[in-house]
Computed example of a mutant assay.
Amino acid sequence: MILLWNPEWGYAKIHRQDGFAAGLCTVTYNQSRVSEARAVVIHFTDVTRELLEWENKTRNPDQFFVFWSVEAPSYLQYYNTKAKWYKDDHFFNWTMTYRRDSDIFAPYLEAGVARDIFSRRLKDTGAAVGVVSIIVYKPNKHIFQLWLVSNCNVLYGSVERMKYVDKLIEAGLPVERFGKCFNNAAEFNDLSLDRLASYKFYLAFENALHCKDYVSEKFWQNGIQSWRVPVVWGARKEDLLRLVPENSFIHADDYETAADLAEYLIYLDNNTTAYTEYFNWFGSNYTTEYLATLYERTAETLLCDKLLAKPEPKIIPSVKENIFSSESEDCLKEKTLYHVRY
Rank of each mutant, 00 (worst) to 15 (best):
T28V: 00
E300S: 01
Y137N: 14
K13D: 03
F144R: 04
H142E: 05
D260K: 02
G130T: 06
E160G: 01
I224W: 02
W147R: 09
V319H: 10
D190R: 14
V27A: 08
D62W: 10
F65D: 06
S32P: 05
C304P: 07
S35F: 13
R242M: 07
Y78H: 14
L148K: 01
F205K: 12
T26C: 12
L337S: 15
N184V: 00
K212T: 09
M1Q: 15
W54D: 11
P7W: 00
D88Y: 03
Y290C: 04
L241F: 04
I315E: 08
A299K: 04
S326L: 08
K163L: 06
N30G: 11
K87D: 14
T298D: 04
V40N: 01
L337V: 14
Y156R: 03
N60I: 00
N222P: 10
Y156D: 10
V131A: 09
L307N: 08
W281Y: 08
V175Q: 06
A106S: 11
P311T: 09
V159E: 05
A274E: 11
R33V: 09
L196R: 14
L243T: 09
S248R: 02
A128L: 13
T26H: 12
S119L: 00
Y202C: 01
C181V: 03
R38L: 07
P317T: 05
L307Y: 09
T301P: 00
R100E: 06
V175H: 00
A252Q: 13
F118S: 01
R49W: 10
A127D: 04
D190I: 14
G19H: 02
K333M: 11
F201S: 10
D330G: 01
Y214R: 02
S284Y: 08
H43V: 08
N140P: 08
R341G: 12
W147F: 12
A111G: 07
P73A: 02
S158E: 11
H339M: 13
A111K: 03
V66L: 08
S133V: 08
R242P: 01
G19E: 01
A204C: 08
K84R: 11
S158W: 03
E327F: 08
Y75S: 15
A127Y: 07
W54S: 15
T257V: 13
A274L: 07
R16I: 02
D101W: 01
Y278F: 14
Y137H: 15
F205W: 03
V70K: 15
N6G: 12
K13Q: 10
A39I: 00
E71D: 05
R49S: 11
S325R: 13
P317C: 02
A171R: 12
N271I: 07
D46N: 11
D260N: 10
A235V: 06
K141H: 00
F20V: 02
L203W: 11
E55F: 14
N6F: 12
S35E: 14
S284K: 05
W68M: 13
S192T: 05
F20I: 00
G112L: 07
E71K: 00
